[in-house]
Protein backbone atom coordinates (compact mmCIF):
# COMPACT_ATOMS: atom_id res chain seq x y z
CA UNK A 1 0.00 0.00 0.00
CA UNK A 2 1.44 3.39 -0.94
CA UNK A 3 2.09 6.11 1.63
CA UNK A 4 -0.54 8.74 2.19
CA UNK A 5 0.67 12.32 2.35
CA UNK A 6 -1.39 15.47 2.82
CA UNK A 7 -0.39 18.72 1.13
CA UNK A 8 -2.21 21.86 2.35
CA UNK A 9 -2.13 24.66 -0.22
CA UNK A 10 -2.04 24.50 -4.00
CA UNK A 11 0.41 27.27 -4.80
CA UNK A 12 3.82 26.78 -6.45
CA UNK A 13 5.34 25.11 -3.37
CA UNK A 14 2.41 22.83 -2.66
CA UNK A 15 1.98 21.85 -6.28
CA UNK A 16 5.63 21.05 -6.76
CA UNK A 17 5.68 18.99 -3.55
CA UNK A 18 2.58 17.10 -4.62
CA UNK A 19 3.96 16.45 -8.09
CA UNK A 20 7.27 15.16 -6.77
CA UNK A 21 5.58 12.86 -4.26
CA UNK A 22 3.17 11.57 -6.91
CA UNK A 23 6.15 10.73 -9.11
CA UNK A 24 7.46 8.58 -6.26
CA UNK A 25 4.15 6.74 -6.23
CA UNK A 26 2.83 8.35 -3.09
CA UNK A 27 -0.88 8.90 -2.79
CA UNK A 28 -1.22 12.65 -2.33
CA UNK A 29 -4.22 14.59 -1.06
CA UNK A 30 -4.03 18.25 -1.97
CA UNK A 31 -6.31 20.59 -0.04
CA UNK A 32 -6.90 23.98 -1.65
CA UNK A 33 -9.13 26.73 -0.25
CA UNK A 34 -9.82 28.27 -3.67
CA UNK A 35 -11.83 26.78 -6.49
CA UNK A 36 -8.64 26.59 -8.54
CA UNK A 37 -5.03 25.67 -7.95
CA UNK A 38 -1.99 27.79 -8.74
CA UNK A 39 -2.00 30.03 -5.68
CA UNK A 40 -1.42 33.78 -5.71
CA UNK A 41 0.33 33.77 -9.12
CA UNK A 42 -2.84 32.36 -10.61
CA UNK A 43 -5.20 34.39 -8.47
CA UNK A 44 -3.60 37.72 -9.29
CA UNK A 45 -2.73 36.76 -12.87
CA UNK A 46 1.00 37.34 -12.64
CA UNK A 47 2.29 38.05 -16.09
CA UNK A 48 6.03 37.53 -16.21
CA UNK A 49 8.27 36.02 -13.58
CA UNK A 50 11.70 37.31 -12.76
CA UNK A 51 14.57 36.92 -13.30
CA UNK A 52 14.25 35.79 -16.91
CA UNK A 53 10.84 37.33 -17.59
CA UNK A 54 9.34 34.07 -18.71
CA UNK A 55 5.56 34.04 -18.82
CA UNK A 56 4.07 33.00 -15.47
CA UNK A 57 1.84 30.66 -17.38
CA UNK A 58 4.88 28.60 -18.39
CA UNK A 59 5.71 27.89 -14.78
CA UNK A 60 2.41 27.88 -12.97
CA UNK A 61 0.52 26.34 -15.90
CA UNK A 62 3.04 23.53 -16.05
CA UNK A 63 2.72 22.82 -12.32
CA UNK A 64 -1.09 22.83 -12.54
CA UNK A 65 -1.17 20.61 -15.60
CA UNK A 66 1.10 18.08 -13.96
CA UNK A 67 -0.93 17.99 -10.76
CA UNK A 68 -4.25 17.74 -12.50
CA UNK A 69 -3.14 14.96 -14.79
CA UNK A 70 -1.44 12.79 -12.18
CA UNK A 71 -3.79 10.14 -10.87
CA UNK A 72 -1.82 9.80 -7.66
CA UNK A 73 -2.93 13.28 -6.66
CA UNK A 74 -6.39 13.89 -5.36
CA UNK A 75 -7.22 17.60 -5.34
CA UNK A 76 -9.84 18.92 -2.94
CA UNK A 77 -10.98 22.30 -4.33
CA UNK A 78 -12.64 24.97 -2.17
CA UNK A 79 -11.78 22.87 0.85
CA UNK A 80 -10.30 23.19 4.26
CA UNK A 81 -8.88 21.06 7.04
CA UNK A 82 -11.49 21.12 9.79
CA UNK A 83 -10.01 18.65 12.23
CA UNK A 84 -6.46 17.53 12.82
CA UNK A 85 -5.38 14.86 15.28
CA UNK A 86 -2.12 13.10 15.90
CA UNK A 87 -2.41 9.35 15.78
CA UNK A 88 0.91 7.87 16.94
CA UNK A 89 3.33 8.82 14.22
CA UNK A 90 0.44 9.45 11.86
CA UNK A 91 -2.24 12.08 11.49
CA UNK A 92 -6.00 11.79 11.29
CA UNK A 93 -7.28 14.67 9.25
CA UNK A 94 -10.81 15.75 8.43
CA UNK A 95 -11.18 17.55 5.15
CA UNK A 96 -14.28 19.53 4.37
CA UNK A 97 -15.04 20.05 0.72
CA UNK A 98 -18.15 21.05 -1.20
CA UNK A 99 -18.62 17.34 -1.88
CA UNK A 100 -18.76 16.52 1.79
CA UNK A 101 -16.54 15.78 4.76
CA UNK A 102 -14.09 12.92 4.97
CA UNK A 103 -11.51 11.82 7.48
CA UNK A 104 -8.29 10.17 6.36
CA UNK A 105 -5.08 9.01 7.96
CA UNK A 106 -1.87 10.48 6.60
CA UNK A 107 1.72 9.42 7.14
CA UNK A 108 2.96 12.99 6.95
CA UNK A 109 1.77 16.50 6.17
CA UNK A 110 3.18 19.37 4.11
CA UNK A 111 1.93 22.85 4.88
CA UNK A 112 2.27 25.21 1.93
CA UNK A 113 -0.36 27.82 2.68
CA UNK A 114 1.66 30.64 1.20
CA UNK A 115 1.28 34.34 1.85
CA UNK A 116 -1.08 37.25 1.40
CA UNK A 117 -0.26 40.49 -0.36
CA UNK A 118 -0.15 43.32 2.14
CA UNK A 119 -3.26 45.43 1.76
CA UNK A 120 -2.06 49.04 1.38
CA UNK A 121 -5.56 50.21 2.26
CA UNK A 122 -4.71 49.56 5.90
CA UNK A 123 -1.87 52.08 5.79
CA UNK A 124 -3.59 55.41 5.43
CA UNK A 125 -0.61 57.45 4.23
CA UNK A 126 -0.60 55.87 0.79
CA UNK A 127 -4.19 56.91 -0.02
CA UNK A 128 -4.80 53.58 -1.71
CA UNK A 129 -8.46 53.20 -2.69
CA UNK A 130 -8.82 56.96 -2.28
CA UNK A 131 -7.21 57.83 -5.59
CA UNK A 132 -7.98 55.58 -8.51
CA UNK A 133 -4.51 56.06 -9.90
CA UNK A 134 -2.82 54.74 -6.80
CA UNK A 135 -2.54 51.01 -7.37
CA UNK A 136 -0.38 48.32 -5.88
CA UNK A 137 2.01 45.75 -7.20
CA UNK A 138 -0.60 43.05 -7.65
CA UNK A 139 -3.09 45.39 -9.29
CA UNK A 140 -0.47 46.39 -11.83
CA UNK A 141 0.55 42.78 -12.38
CA UNK A 142 -3.05 41.91 -13.06
CA UNK A 143 -3.54 44.91 -15.33
CA UNK A 144 -0.47 44.06 -17.33
CA UNK A 145 -1.52 40.43 -17.45
CA UNK A 146 -4.70 41.62 -19.13
CA UNK A 147 -2.70 43.79 -21.51
CA UNK A 148 -3.82 47.02 -19.87
CA UNK A 149 -1.14 49.57 -19.09
CA UNK A 150 -3.39 52.62 -18.84
CA UNK A 151 -4.44 54.77 -15.92
CA UNK A 152 -7.38 53.36 -14.01
CA UNK A 153 -8.94 56.82 -13.64
CA UNK A 154 -9.32 57.71 -17.29
CA UNK A 155 -7.97 54.85 -19.38
CA UNK A 156 -5.25 56.99 -20.89
CA UNK A 157 -1.56 56.12 -20.96
CA UNK A 158 0.30 57.59 -17.99
CA UNK A 159 3.01 60.11 -18.77
CA UNK A 160 4.90 59.38 -15.61
CA UNK A 161 4.71 56.70 -12.98
CA UNK A 162 6.05 56.54 -9.45
CA UNK A 163 6.86 53.21 -7.89
CA UNK A 164 7.07 53.34 -4.11
CA UNK A 165 9.04 50.60 -2.39
CA UNK A 166 8.68 49.17 1.12
CA UNK A 167 4.92 49.57 1.34
CA UNK A 168 3.80 47.39 4.22
CA UNK A 169 7.33 46.21 4.81
CA UNK A 170 9.93 47.55 7.20
CA UNK A 171 7.28 49.63 8.87
CA UNK A 172 6.35 49.27 12.52
CA UNK A 173 3.15 51.19 11.99
CA UNK A 174 1.64 48.30 10.13
CA UNK A 175 3.40 45.78 12.31
CA UNK A 176 5.72 44.42 9.63
CA UNK A 177 9.33 44.92 10.51
CA UNK A 178 10.77 42.53 7.99
CA UNK A 179 11.84 43.02 4.36
CA UNK A 180 9.55 41.29 1.89
CA UNK A 181 12.49 40.34 -0.32
CA UNK A 182 10.77 40.21 -3.70
CA UNK A 183 9.03 43.58 -4.06
CA UNK A 184 12.18 45.39 -5.22
CA UNK A 185 12.76 42.88 -7.97
CA UNK A 186 9.12 42.76 -8.97
CA UNK A 187 9.09 46.55 -9.08
CA UNK A 188 12.09 46.90 -11.37
CA UNK A 189 10.62 44.17 -13.50
CA UNK A 190 7.37 46.08 -13.71
CA UNK A 191 9.25 49.27 -14.46
CA UNK A 192 10.90 47.55 -17.40
CA UNK A 193 7.59 46.21 -18.66
CA UNK A 194 6.00 49.65 -18.40
CA UNK A 195 8.90 51.21 -20.26
CA UNK A 196 8.79 48.55 -22.92
CA UNK A 197 5.13 49.24 -23.45
CA UNK A 198 5.39 53.04 -23.32
CA UNK A 199 9.01 53.99 -24.07
CA UNK A 200 8.19 57.67 -23.68
CA UNK A 201 6.88 57.23 -20.16
CA UNK A 202 8.98 58.40 -17.23
CA UNK A 203 9.32 55.88 -14.43
CA UNK A 204 10.64 56.85 -11.01
CA UNK A 205 11.33 54.46 -8.18
CA UNK A 206 11.29 55.91 -4.67
CA UNK A 207 13.46 53.77 -2.49
CA UNK A 208 15.12 53.50 0.84
CA UNK A 209 17.33 50.56 -0.10
CA UNK A 210 17.03 48.60 -3.32
CA UNK A 211 17.29 44.94 -2.49
CA UNK A 212 17.37 43.09 -5.77
CA UNK A 213 19.61 40.48 -4.25
CA UNK A 214 21.72 37.95 -6.12
CA UNK A 215 21.25 37.77 -9.85
CA UNK A 216 18.01 39.74 -9.64
CA UNK A 217 20.39 42.68 -9.66
CA UNK A 218 20.63 42.21 -13.42
CA UNK A 219 17.06 43.40 -13.77
CA UNK A 220 17.80 46.46 -11.69
CA UNK A 221 20.79 47.35 -13.84
CA UNK A 222 18.79 46.72 -16.94
CA UNK A 223 15.98 48.97 -15.75
CA UNK A 224 18.44 51.80 -15.25
CA UNK A 225 20.84 51.34 -18.09
CA UNK A 226 18.55 50.24 -20.86
CA UNK A 227 15.29 51.83 -19.84
CA UNK A 228 16.39 54.99 -18.05
CA UNK A 229 14.32 54.23 -14.97
CA UNK A 230 15.20 56.87 -12.42
CA UNK A 231 15.69 56.00 -8.79
CA UNK A 232 15.07 58.62 -6.12
CA UNK A 233 16.18 58.05 -2.55
CA UNK A 234 13.46 58.85 -0.08
CA UNK A 235 10.33 57.17 1.14
CA UNK A 236 7.09 58.86 0.20
CA UNK A 237 5.31 60.39 3.17
CA UNK A 238 2.05 61.60 1.68
CA UNK A 239 0.00 61.24 -1.46
CA UNK A 240 -2.40 64.06 -2.23
CA UNK A 241 -4.42 65.54 -5.07
CA UNK A 242 -2.44 67.13 -7.84
CA UNK A 243 -3.21 69.32 -10.84
CA UNK A 244 -4.75 67.87 -14.01
CA UNK A 245 -6.06 64.77 -12.30
CA UNK A 246 -2.61 63.74 -11.08
CA UNK A 247 -1.59 62.63 -7.63
CA UNK A 248 1.30 64.28 -5.84
CA UNK A 249 3.92 62.20 -4.06
CA UNK A 250 5.58 64.10 -1.25
CA UNK A 251 8.72 63.21 0.57
CA UNK A 252 12.26 64.14 1.38
CA UNK A 253 14.98 63.52 -1.13
CA UNK A 254 17.44 62.27 1.44
CA UNK A 255 20.34 62.72 -0.97
CA UNK A 256 19.60 66.32 -1.81
CA UNK A 257 18.17 66.93 1.64
CA UNK A 258 15.22 68.85 0.32
CA UNK A 259 11.47 68.39 -0.04
CA UNK A 260 9.92 67.07 -3.23
CA UNK A 261 6.26 67.21 -4.21
CA UNK A 262 5.95 65.70 -7.64
CA UNK A 263 2.71 65.12 -9.54
CA UNK A 264 2.36 61.67 -11.11
CA UNK A 265 -0.20 60.14 -13.42
CA UNK A 266 0.03 56.79 -11.71
CA UNK A 267 1.53 55.53 -8.49
CA UNK A 268 2.39 51.90 -7.88
CA UNK A 269 2.80 50.75 -4.31
CA UNK A 270 5.24 47.87 -3.95
CA UNK A 271 3.24 46.19 -1.24
CA UNK A 272 4.98 43.42 0.61
CA UNK A 273 4.07 39.94 1.73
CA UNK A 274 2.33 38.86 4.91
CA UNK A 275 1.63 35.55 6.59
CA UNK A 276 -2.05 36.26 6.18
CA UNK A 277 -4.84 34.86 8.35
CA UNK A 278 -4.06 31.34 7.19
CA UNK A 279 -0.76 31.16 9.07
CA UNK A 280 -2.22 31.61 12.58
CA UNK A 281 -5.06 29.36 11.53
CA UNK A 282 -2.65 26.57 10.56
CA UNK A 283 -0.64 27.18 13.70
CA UNK A 284 -3.75 26.71 15.81
CA UNK A 285 -5.19 23.74 13.94
CA UNK A 286 -1.99 21.80 13.51
CA UNK A 287 -0.36 22.87 16.74
CA UNK A 288 2.74 24.23 15.05
CA UNK A 289 4.63 27.34 15.99
CA UNK A 290 4.08 30.84 14.60
CA UNK A 291 6.94 33.35 14.49
CA UNK A 292 6.85 36.97 15.61
CA UNK A 293 6.29 38.15 12.04
CA UNK A 294 3.10 36.18 11.55
CA UNK A 295 4.60 33.40 9.43
CA UNK A 296 4.98 29.74 10.33
CA UNK A 297 8.19 29.02 12.18
CA UNK A 298 10.66 26.44 10.89
CA UNK A 299 12.23 24.12 13.47
CA UNK A 300 15.69 25.35 12.55
CA UNK A 301 15.85 28.19 10.09
CA UNK A 302 19.29 27.17 8.82
CA UNK A 303 19.46 23.41 9.15
CA UNK A 304 15.92 22.41 8.36
CA UNK A 305 13.92 25.36 7.06
CA UNK A 306 11.33 22.96 5.63
CA UNK A 307 10.45 21.29 8.96
CA UNK A 308 7.92 22.54 11.48
CA UNK A 309 8.55 22.14 15.17
CA UNK A 310 6.34 19.04 15.08
CA UNK A 311 7.63 15.74 13.67
CA UNK A 312 5.86 14.72 10.51
CA UNK A 313 4.64 18.20 9.61
CA UNK A 314 6.72 19.95 6.97
CA UNK A 315 6.69 23.51 5.67
CA UNK A 316 7.22 24.77 2.15
CA UNK A 317 7.08 28.08 0.36
CA UNK A 318 6.06 31.52 1.50
CA UNK A 319 4.21 30.30 4.59
CA UNK A 320 7.57 30.51 6.39
CA UNK A 321 8.51 33.96 5.13
CA UNK A 322 8.56 36.14 2.03
CA UNK A 323 10.24 34.44 -0.90
CA UNK A 324 10.38 34.23 -4.65
CA UNK A 325 8.53 31.56 -6.62
CA UNK A 326 11.76 29.78 -7.44
CA UNK A 327 12.58 29.44 -3.75
CA UNK A 328 9.08 28.23 -3.02
CA UNK A 329 9.45 25.52 -5.63
CA UNK A 330 12.82 24.46 -4.28
CA UNK A 331 11.36 24.22 -0.79
CA UNK A 332 8.40 22.25 -2.15
CA UNK A 333 10.87 19.66 -3.39
CA UNK A 334 12.82 19.61 -0.16
CA UNK A 335 9.67 19.27 1.94
CA UNK A 336 8.41 16.50 -0.35
CA UNK A 337 11.60 14.51 0.12
CA UNK A 338 11.52 14.92 3.91
CA UNK A 339 7.83 14.12 4.12
CA UNK A 340 8.48 11.00 2.08
CA UNK A 341 11.36 9.87 4.30
CA UNK A 342 9.23 10.39 7.40
CA UNK A 343 6.29 8.53 5.86
CA UNK A 344 8.51 5.63 4.76
CA UNK A 345 10.11 5.31 8.21
CA UNK A 346 6.83 5.31 10.02
CA UNK A 347 4.68 3.49 7.45
CA UNK A 348 4.12 0.36 9.53
Amino acid sequence: MPENILVIGGGPAGLHAANELAELGVSVSLVERDAFIGGNPKKFKYKFLFPDLQPAENVIGELIKKAESNKNIRIYYSSEVTDFKENGKKFDVTIKSPKGTETKTFNSVIVATGFEHFDPATDSKYSYQLFDDVIDIKDLEKMMGEGNFNRPSNGKPPRNVAIILCVGSRDRHVGNQYCSRVCCTVSVKQAIELKEHFPEMEVYIFYMDIRTYGFYEDLYWKAMEEHDVQIVKGRVAEITSGPDNTVICKGEDTLLRGPFEIPFDMVVLASGMEGGPQSPEMSKKLGIELDEHGFLKPANITLSPFKSNKDGIFLAGACTGPKAIVDAIVEGGAAAMNAYIYAKKNAQ
Binding site: E225, D228, K233, D253, F260, E261, I262
Partner: peptide
Protein backbone atom coordinates in the same frame (compact mmCIF):
# COMPACT_ATOMS: atom_id res chain seq x y z
CA UNK B 1 9.95 72.58 -2.70
CA UNK B 2 10.98 70.69 -5.81
CA UNK B 3 7.76 70.32 -7.71
CA UNK B 4 8.89 68.72 -10.92
CA UNK B 5 11.47 66.45 -12.41
CA UNK B 6 12.72 67.66 -15.75
CA UNK B 7 13.57 64.58 -17.72
CA UNK B 8 14.22 66.44 -20.96
CA UNK B 9 17.31 67.71 -19.30
CA UNK B 10 18.46 64.18 -18.59
CA UNK B 11 17.90 63.24 -22.23
CA UNK B 12 19.94 66.24 -23.31
CA UNK B 13 22.92 65.16 -21.26
CA UNK B 14 22.60 61.57 -22.29
CA UNK B 15 23.14 62.57 -25.91
CA UNK B 16 26.55 64.07 -25.24
CA UNK B 17 29.81 62.12 -25.45
CA UNK B 18 30.79 62.94 -21.88
CA UNK B 19 27.36 62.51 -20.33
CA UNK B 20 26.22 59.41 -22.17
CA UNK B 21 26.24 57.27 -19.04
CA UNK B 22 24.16 59.47 -16.81
CA UNK B 23 21.43 56.85 -16.66
CA UNK B 24 23.73 54.40 -14.94
CA UNK B 25 24.34 56.28 -11.73
CA UNK B 26 22.77 54.78 -8.62
CA UNK B 27 24.12 57.26 -6.16
Amino acid sequence: VDSEYDRSFFEEIKKTVVGSRINRCWQ
